[in-house]
């Protein structure tokens, strides 16, 4: 993953964070991959929705980058970058979106509803807030089993922050004192709904105190800041501090899903500082600071395009699931399956 980033890196210039270029590469890969998914969607090649993390790559990548084996990651719909940083292969994503029977969900679930719990990445259900307590349970069990040094990280939007499940989950994490990091991204829209119809408090990070969390805020368009703030939160949780709430500010730079033209996003909000494109900002910084030259950057793009094309082409060639061969049994204890006449 690091090859071009390292090759292109100027020896004399120092990146603002040791994982800066690694993170940038994943962000760029995410953008290219998601553009590919969007184009497949427009071409009618994808059944169901496509949800992009455009504008949120910096926060998301930082969510995955500081987790290790044994940690728990429960990403949501805008976390392609975080999932890749955590180690999810692009092929898993392509297979899930394209309904390959070889994918982790084997056509039983699609798009962003995917994961590999055995590798630590939970498969989200749609119901917002429902994954927080599941992470708490994983962490509680790890502690009961005597494991040490693990953390759990889950993400949520400013809309999802308003469900009862989120409240219960955040509270129970503090009661159980598990090493949890909740990264909430306020991208200023929950589907079509702006902040003023979503919450009444001045700033979502103020809730940290109420839950007994340590809170921090971060500009979600600034990669260095995201890496700094989220790695520090992960480190604190790992060290046994109370659960951590990080609130990032961004603008969703795509529709809610690719079916949505986002015409409700106002011109005013597009001029806000949080509306900057994190990826563009990072790239500009890299060039200005000569962390990479244009040639190396171009080379990186070519490599990434090849990786994306390969993942998609592989998944496209694979068989899709067949109803007559499906095992229509929802429980693992087969002898207890109800035999409906």
């Amino acid at each position: 993953m690091l090859q071009t980033a390292e090759r292109g890196a100027s020896k004399s210039k120092k990146a603002p964070h040791k994982k800066y270029l690694e993170a940038f590469r994943i962000m760029l890969q995410t953008r290219v991959f998601e553009e590919k998914l969007a184009s497949l969607y427009r071409g009618g090649m994808i059944t169901g929705g496509v949800y992009l993390g455009k504008g949120q790559e910096a926060v998301s990548v930082a969510c995955g980058l500081f987790l290790q084996k044994g940690d728990v990651f429960a990403p949501l719909i805008r976390d392609q970058a975080g999932r890749s940083a955590f180690g999810e292969p692009l092929l898993d994503v392509a297979r899930t979106y394209l309904g390959s029977r070889q994918g982790p969900m084997r056509g039983r679930d699609g798009n962003i509803h995917r994961g590999c719990p055995k590798a630590g990445q939970l498969a989200m259900i749609s119901h917002l807030g429902a994954m927080i307590s599941v992470v708490v349970g994983k962490l509680l069990a790890k502690r009961m089993k005597g494991e040490k040094g693990f953390v759990g990280l889950t993400t949520i939007g400013e809309g999802g922050m308003q469900t009862g499940a989120t409240h219960e989950g955040m509270n129970i994490a503090a009661v159980e004192r598990v090493p949890l990091v909740v990264v909430a991204t306020n991208n200023h829209y929950a589907y079509s709904t702006p902040n003023d119809r979503q919450f009444g408090c001045a700033d979502l990070v103020d809730r940290a105190k109420g839950y007994g969390y340590e809170g921090s805020s971060v500009d979600g368009t600034d990669l260095a800041a995201c890496l700094e703030v989220i790695s520090a939160a992960v480190k604190r949780a790992r060290a046994g501090r109370p659960p951590q709430l990080v609130v990032a500010s961004t603008l969703r730079l795509a529709g809610h899903g690719e079916h949505d033209d986002a015409s409700y996003v106002t011109d005013d909000i597009r001029r806000e500082p949080f509306a900057q494109d994190a990826l563009q900002r990072t790239e500009q910084f890299i060039l200005e600071q000569e962390l990479m030259d244009r040639e190396a950057l171009q080379q990186m793009r070519v490599e990434i395009a090849a990786e994306v094309d390969e993942a998609v082409a592989t998944a496209q060639q694979e068989d899709t699931p067949v109803g007559s061969e499906e095992d229509w049994c929802a429980i693992s204890t087969r002898e207890l399956a109800d035999q409906i006449p």
């Binding site: 994954m131 708490v136 509680l140 069990a141």
Partner: peptide, 18 residues
Amino acid sequence: TPISEDAMVGTAIGAAME
């Protein structure tokens, strides 16, 4: 547990998966 039926079951699910 706190009075949090949703989170009680969610936590149990996570623990069971573990």
